[in-house]
Simulated assay, not measured.
Amino acid sequence: MAETGDFAAWLLWMPMRPKLAPHLMQQNGQKMLQAIPSNLGILNASTNGARMTTTWLEAHVPGFAELSKAERQAIADFTMLWTLFESRVLATQGSAQKIVEVVEGWEQTSTFGATSYDRELAYFQDRYVANGEMTCHFDGLKLRANDQPALVQAVLDGSNASPRDRLIAMLIVVLRYRNNLFHGIKWQYKLKGQLDNFSHANAVLMRVLEQHGDLHGE
């Protein structure tokens, strides 16, 4: 499902399946055909509503129409992944301080598995460092004083290879993506060209959630 509208429709469709499927399997072909349109009407209505939202965004938000389907999907996925990450991992405290706290906890129990993020770290290093100097993209992160800017820079330029600090730095970069997106800073750049950023951020969030998100708990 490439469009976020398709995803919204899917969310509405899923709760209907347990009720719809047994009923359909027990009926003859004619009744099956009668049952399908009434349920699909709900699905079509949700899809049309989502498409109306997309049409409105394309008409009113600068740069939204130029985003590819992949870019839109990556940004939508990031929004959902970050919300889950902040809830399950950061205890609803989305801050650099909380990131440091939870990573230090993983370090004490030897559960942070920093080497499994090597590909994502390499991407961030390539983006934010060139010829030994920080690139303009690094300034675009808008790191604040409490975002551990010295630590993040040292990890990105390779002068700090501590497994603990590498994971902290990556998660703070992802945090800055979150803040810059939700607070509107990235909209100033019209979001174009952000596919790789959000794709790698999503990979980090998914891996952290798999390891530490208690996805099978209550």
Rank of each mutant, 00 (worst) to 15 (best):
R164C: 04
M14K: 13
K142Y: 13
E210K: 11
D147Y: 04
G217R: 12
G193Y: 08
K98H: 11
Q188G: 13
M14C: 10
S162N: 07
M80H: 13
I172W: 04
S199H: 11
M80N: 12
L141G: 02
G193W: 06
M134L: 13
A8T: 15
N202S: 05
Q26P: 00
A114D: 10
G217Y: 09
T135Y: 03
W56H: 08
T111G: 11
Q125P: 01
D196F: 09
L40H: 10
Q34G: 03
N28F: 09
M16N: 08
P15F: 05
K69S: 14
Q30D: 11
Q148I: 00
L171G: 01
Q153C: 07
M16P: 01
S162L: 02
P22Q: 01
L40Q: 12
L20S: 06
N28Q: 13
E58Q: 09
F124G: 04
S95T: 12
R166S: 10
Q211W: 11
H212I: 05
P18E: 08
L33R: 14
T83L: 13
A161L: 10
A8K: 15
I99Q: 02
D196C: 00
S68F: 06
W106I: 06
K98T: 15
S87T: 14
M16S: 09
V102E: 04
N160F: 00
A50P: 00
A8Y: 15
E3Y: 13
E101F: 06
D139Q: 11
G94M: 10
Q27G: 04
A169D: 03
R144W: 02
L57H: 00
N48Y: 00
I36W: 11
G63Q: 03
P18T: 05
L209D: 07
M206I: 11
D147Q: 02
R176S: 02
S95D: 03
